[in-house]
Amino acid sequence: MASPSIPAGGHGEPSRRDFLMVATGALGAVGTIAVAWPFINNLNPAADTLALSTVEVNVQPIQVGQAVTVKWRGKPLFIRHRTPEEIKTAEAVPLSELRDPQTDNSRVTDTAKKVRPEWLIMIGVCTHLGCVPLGNKPGDPKGPYDGWFCPCHGSAYDTSGRIRQGPAPKNLEIPPYLFTSDTLVRVG
């Protein structure tokens, strides 16, 4: 009883056996992926880790010229309430002088495109080899550019957190953040 759609084969035409082999192989491949996926997905961050991936900070108690360090995704987050002098110094630096050119303006814009130059929010991890730079606590050395200074290998960052001296290749990273009100910022 020959099926009209599945030829008996011969002369290069696919046979019933070929059809069965390909169909079984394809189903087997789909089945393997279906079984493997939960095991691989299992290694993705769990719900509790994801819940900690967003943090909300009330910045109202932070005075002008003060900075706080908040733990975010296992790393320190530097939140600095910049003074007008610090903002002016940062804006005055020509881009040609920067190893990693970025305008100060672009570094203080939130995800809703609102610019708040007085709030500098950065991940406090040196872009060289990962130490936490000094400068966020009162009494910390601020380095030659009056921002942050990494004691491990001497990287110096300015009042916008941009690399000015030392081995670090990039400016301190700005995370995605959103001011949900004038005093509440959601990071991540």
């Binding site: 996926w37 939960p38 095991f39 997905n41 299992n42 993705n44 961050p45 769990a46 719900a47 509790d48 880790t49």
Partner: peptide, 13 residues
């Protein structure tokens, strides 16, 4: 319980 509720596909494993 964390495996059952929070870990992706944890309940299945």
């Amino acid at each position: 319980e964390r495996i059952m509720r929070d870990v992706p596909s944890g309940w299945l494993i």
